[in-house]
Design a protein around this nucleic acid. Structure first.
Lengths: 209, 209
DNA sequence: AATTTTCTTGACCACTTGGTCAGGCTATGA
DNA sequence: TCATAGCCTGACCAAGTGGTCAAGAAAATT
C-alpha cells in the first residue's frame, strides 16, 4: 500500500513484487479457478502490467504452482502442534484450533488447494505422494500409539485424519454457504463457537476425555 | 452406448440427448471448473457436434446451472432418511449412509457443487437463500428436539450439520487425495470402513448411543 | 403426399486468452 | 562516471473461446 520513499534494493523489488503477485493470484485463483482466472485480472488486482507478471512468473502455471505450494507449507507447519502433545486431547485439540485458524486467515489458499485436489492434483501430485504421504503415516503411527496407550477409543486413524481435514477446511471452502445460512459472515464469537463445536464433537467422537 | 435400431420418437431424442450432454458436462465441469471447461470438450465427450449442445442449452451457463441443480436435488432427496427416524442414531446414521453413498456414486456432481459454492455461488445463490436455508432450519429444529428429549448431547445443531456435510462430501471432493494416500482407489470394503468410521465418530461425538 | 416442426451440423465470427518481444528505464558495481 | 545486469511495459500475435446461422435431414401432423 505505502509507497516507500527510498529507492528499493534489487532484492527488495523482486521479493515485494513476487509477494504482491502471489497475493493477488491467490485471490483470483480462489475466486475463478485455474481456468477461469486470467493473468490480466491478477495483474489488475496487483496493480502491475500483465507483462510484468510474466517477467517474474513465465507462465500462468508457474504462478499457480507457487500459490499451491505456499498453502501446503502453511498446513504442514500447523501440524507441528500435534507432535509435541502428551495425548489426543491436547494434540488433536491443538491441531483443530490451528487448522480452524488457518481456515479463517487463509480461506483463499484453502480454496485453491481444494480446487487443485478436486481436479486431480495435476500440479502437486508429487507432493501428495511424498511429503503428504510421509506426514500422514507419521501421524497415523502417533494416533495408533495413543490408542494402544488407552488414551482414546479404537478408531481408524486415516479416517480420523480425513475428518479433521474435512471439518476444518469446510469452514474455508464452504465459507460462503455458511455465511449465507448464517445470514452474515461469521463473527469472532461465531468462529469461537465453530472451533469449540468441532473440538467437542471430534474429541468426544474419538473417546478422548 | 447402445444404438437403438428403431427410429427414436421426438421426446426420446430430446430426453436422451439432454441426459447425454448433462452427463458429459458434469464430468468436464468437475475436472476443469466452469472457466476451464469448454463446450468443445463436453461435445466431444458426449459424441455430439458442438453446435448441437447449443441447440439444447443455449449458453454454457444454462448447461452448468442444470448440472448444479441436478446435484442439489439428489442431496435434498437424501435428507428424507433423517425425518422419519425416531432418534439421532437412526436418523443421523441413515443420513450419513445416504450421503456417503452419494459421494461414492456422484463424485463429479459433488465436485461441481463444491466448485460453485467455493466461487461464491454465482449461479445458485437463490437456492442457498431459500430452499437450503429452509431445509437447514427444519433440521435444526429436529436436532433441538432430540436434544430436548435427552436423545443426544447438547451440541450446536448448525455445526453438526456442517460436520456431516464436510465429513461425507470430503470423500467425493478430495477423493483423489484419499486414493493417493491409500495407494489406490477405495474398494467396496474401504468405503464400508469409511462409512462406519464416520458414523461411529459422529454418533459418539454427539453423545447418541 | 404435402407441410410443418423439430433436430443436426459445418462453417463462420467477434472477442479474449496466454504469452512474446523490443526497447526503454533503473539500480549496482567497478 | 560508465557499463552492465536486472527490471519494466506497450504493442502485438497465434490459438482458442462461446456463440451464431443457414441450410439441410428427419420425424410428426395434416
Amino acid at each position: 500500500m505505502s509507497e516507500p520513499l527510498r529507492p528499493l534494493r534489487r532484492n527488495e523489488i523482486r521479493q515485494q513484487n513476487e509477494a504482491l503477485i502471489c497475493q493477488a493470484a491467490e485471490k483470483v485463483f480462489a475466486e475463478a479457478g485455474f481456468g477461469g482466472a486470467t493473468m490480466q485480472l491478477i495483474a489488475d488486482l496487483a496493480g502491475l502490467p500483465k507483462a510484468n507478471l510474466h517477467y517474474y512468473f513465465p507462465t500462468k502455471e508457474d504462478l499457480y504452482r507457487r500459490v499451491v505450494q505456499d498453502i501446503f507449507e502453511i498446513w504442514l507447519h500447523a501440524a507441528e502442534a500435534m507432535d509435541s502433545a502428551p495425548g489426543p486431547v491436547e494434540g488433536i485439540g491443538a491441531y483443530i484450533e490451528a487448522k480452524m485458524e488457518i481456515s479463517r486467515r487463509h480461506p483463499d489458499g484453502s480454496k485453491v488447494w481444494a480446487y487443485e485436489v478436486m481436479h486431480g492434483a495435476p500440479v502437486i501430485q508429487d507432493y501428495l505422494e511424498t511429503t503428504l504421504r510421509d506426514w500422514t503415516s507419521g501421524r497415523v503411527r502417533l494416533i495408533e500409539r495413543w490408542i494402544a496407550e488407552g488414551k482414546m477409543a479404537r478408531v481408524d486413524p486415516e479416517h480420523l485424519l480425513y475428518m479433521l481435514w474435512a471439518a476444518t477446511q469446510h469452514y474455508a471452502d464452504f465459507g460462503h454457504q455458511i455465511a449465507t445460512l448464517n445470514g452474515q459472515p461469521l463473527t469472532d464469537a461465531d468462529w469461537q463457537r465453530a472451533t469449540d463445536s468441532v473440538k467437542t464433537m471430534i474429541l468426544r467422537g474419538i473417546g478422548a476425555v
